[in-house]
Computed example of a mutant assay.
Amino acid sequence: MKISKEGSFYTREYSNLFRELGYPEDEIRQKLDHTWNELFYGTADVRIYHPLDDDKGYIVDTGNSDVRTEGMSYGMMMAVQMDKKEEFDRLWRFAKMYMQHTEGRYKDFFAWHCKPDGTRLSSGPAPDGEEFFAMALFFAANRWGDGPEPSDYSEQARIILRACVHQGEEGEGNPVWDPATRLIKFIPESSFSDPSYHLPHFYHLFALQADEQDRAFWTEAAAASRAYLHKACHPETGLAPEYANYDGTPAAPQPHGDFRHFFSDAYRVAANIVLDYEWFRSDPWQVEQSNRLQAFFRDIEVADYRRYTIEGRPLEEPALHPVGLLATLAMASLAADGPDAEAFVKQLWHTPLRTGVRRYYDNCLYFFSLLALSGNYRIY
């Protein structure tokens, strides 16, 4: 099911696993377009995007009735991949106006969540938003060209990355990459990470487009994250914890909860690993890891997905986002070469978008999986 021994960055070819499994090209395109339309303009129990005023828009976390940098940056990535400049610009204007700090310890970072009217609920950043914002902005610059501020996309991306690396060097605040290990932090003040924040495929591209003096840093960050994921993922189950120390071991319980287990955040680890594989193919371990994870879930029905210890023991709490987990397991087939790869792709194809209150996170992961499995999650 693989088209090349080299990644898409080098070949400019992208795997289309749906087509390889016999789904017609027009049906694949129709499914992708339909899913976009449902998420952005569909019925009230499906859509997650809402326009605001004449020039802004937001993605709502339907389970919490707030707007998060995670969702805003995800929406921008979806829009640039789908060539939807109007929605991209609306999301970016909202984030720029209401979420990005202009001064203080978090200058150029984004308040991680706010109300749909833009009122901030917390000031601190969640760095997965910063890295997705920066990558989406670079892609926008390369796909559509830079315009006047705030549509000078490439410069806006560099402003974010500058803060990620250098915040606090000449004043208050902290960077969101640990200077010693080159690993992304959970928050600027923390001394641990979140494995699902590690996007070495993004850092590889940052090393080509960030400020020249920081390009070596991003090359080192890509290598550090690839090595880190080896440690964070269990060698038998393939499961990763939600939070992990810089040595890859599960982080201690935090005041806001116990995140030592495989749960919602950690679903994204599989998707991040396989997109790195699809784009760069620099680590054969990514194939083994994807096989391990699919094998663990082989005989578990979606309705029975739960929270698990990373050793694989099921806990009482059911998965809050089972469709999102299925989506990342299907996306893992981009790297997997074991007996489960085909089945997970087919299962996702026949699974509809989630409806109801908890749909936001599931359907974001669902759409990213559709993009990747159809060969449409591309480098620009």
Results as ranks from 00 to 15, higher is better:
Trp285Gln: 09
Leu334Trp: 13
Asp117Met: 05
Ala157Gln: 06
Phe206Gly: 00
Tyr228Ser: 06
Tyr243Met: 14
Leu326Asp: 12
Ala343Met: 12
Val269Pro: 00
Leu21Trp: 06
Asp152Leu: 03
Val67His: 02
Arg120Thr: 07
Gly118Lys: 07
Val176Ser: 14
Arg313Trp: 05
Asn245Glu: 11
Ala252Gln: 04
Thr355Asp: 06
Ala327Ser: 14
Arg47Trp: 12
Tyr308Ile: 14
Arg378Glu: 09
Phe296Pro: 07
Val46Asp: 01
Ser369Thr: 13
Leu373Glu: 03
Glu70Ala: 00
Val67Met: 01
Gly248Phe: 09
Ser374Val: 05
Pro339Asn: 13
Gly63Ser: 13
Asp53Pro: 03
Tyr58Phe: 15
Leu21Thr: 00
Leu239Lys: 00
Gln156Thr: 07
Gln167Asn: 10
Glu27Ser: 01
Ala252Ile: 06
Arg47Gln: 03
Ala224Asp: 03
Val176Tyr: 08
Glu103Asn: 15
Thr249Ile: 10
Ala111Phe: 01
Ile3Leu: 10
Pro175Ile: 10
Tyr98Val: 01
Tyr49Cys: 08
Phe217Arg: 01
Asp299His: 11
Ile273Gln: 03
Glu242Leu: 06
Ala221Val: 13
Phe297Glu: 02
Phe139Gly: 02
Asp214Ala: 09
Ala126Asp: 09
Glu317Trp: 11
Glu131Arg: 04
Thr69Ala: 01
Arg158Tyr: 11
Asp362Met: 05
Val67Leu: 08
Phe133Ile: 03
Phe138Pro: 02
Tyr41Asp: 06
Glu87Ser: 07
Phe132Ile: 02
Phe296Ile: 03
Leu21Val: 06
Glu242Ile: 07
Phe132Gly: 03
Phe94Asn: 02
Pro253Ser: 10
Gly124Ser: 13
Asp247Gln: 14
Ile300Asn: 09
